[in-house]
Design a protein around this nucleic acid. Structure first.
Ligand SMILES: [Mn+2]
Ligand SMILES: [Mn+2]
Ligand SMILES: [Zn+2]
Ligand SMILES: [Zn+2]
Lengths: 130, 130
DNA sequence: TATCAGTTTAGAATGATTCTAAAGTGTTGA
DNA sequence: TCAACACTTTAGAATCATTCTAAACTGATA
């Protein structure tokens, strides 16, 4: 808890009650993939009612500080990923199934990068099911 | 134009005025990536005013019939792709930049597929810029 | 402890997409 | 040919994730 406060401070984030609760949940050592909605639900189960606006604000604050990654897998919700290492995913849209691929993946046979652009990130999504 | 009618009929789609215009634009031989909005704009330039509802309906009809692929690259718009071959993309969120990678890409080092699931598709997105 | 910038929040607004239901049209069998 | 009907189009309303607004609140600082 004091760890969490320090953690937030060290990221230039004021350790408010809400951020402490959210960070405590997100960074408990288990990698997680959350949406604003799923996070709200999880916190509510733990009797922590935090407004959706704050949940959005906080997810974005954390994201902007590099504490979370953002995943665009579906058109109608944004996932945030507590695993900030370079990694890839198994994903099932139907089942809302999302699993990290932490193994080192190599993508071979890429054509040359378009003129005047540079590669920021290579993302591999392994879609499961039909 | 009669080709287009036949094309639509052969896909169990009634060749209405609107679908003929849309198919005529989409399947002109050039691969395209469109959103409902961008398609509407392009058609309007060509003096074809078609309601957005119909544009959405038609994109989905074409998609359901395998004439288009759907791409989820950004949380706030869906792209449809006239290139229905297996392929990948260069993508720049900032510049709305989207280019096909038709070369054969190989993804090596995947861990084993989760129990009782099977791989539907492997998608590689090469994000450009920061 | 006063002050103030930073934060939270309810509720309104936004915007892509979907839905509704009424009017229009392509197809077809007689 | 054409009536009949299933399929399609459309305006406008609804949905829903997300963002915005502006007022109340709170952590940091001296
Ligand atoms: Mn949506
Ligand atoms: Mn949106
Ligand atoms: Zn992940
Ligand atoms: Zn493509």
């Amino acid at each position: 808890m004091n760890d969490i406060k320090q953690f937030l401070r060290s990221n230039a984030l004021r350790p408010t009650k809400q951020r402490i609760v959210i960070a405590g949940y997100l960074f408990d050592g288990t990698d997680k993939h959350v949406t604003a909605e799923s996070l709200s639900t999880e916190l509510a189960k733990r009797k922590h009612i935090i407004s959706l606006a704050t949940i959005y604000n906080t997810l974005h604050d954390f994201y902007e500080n590099g504490l979370l990654k953002k995943l665009t897998l579906s058109a109608d919700r944004v996932y945030f990923d507590t695993n900030t290492d370079d990694h890839h995913h198994f994903y099932s849209e139907k089942e809302q199934f999302l699993i990290d691929i932490n193994k080192n993946i190599k993508v071979n046979g890429l054509p040359k990068t378009p003129k005047n652009k540079k590669i920021n990130k290579i993302e591999v999504i392994v879609h499961l099911d039909k």
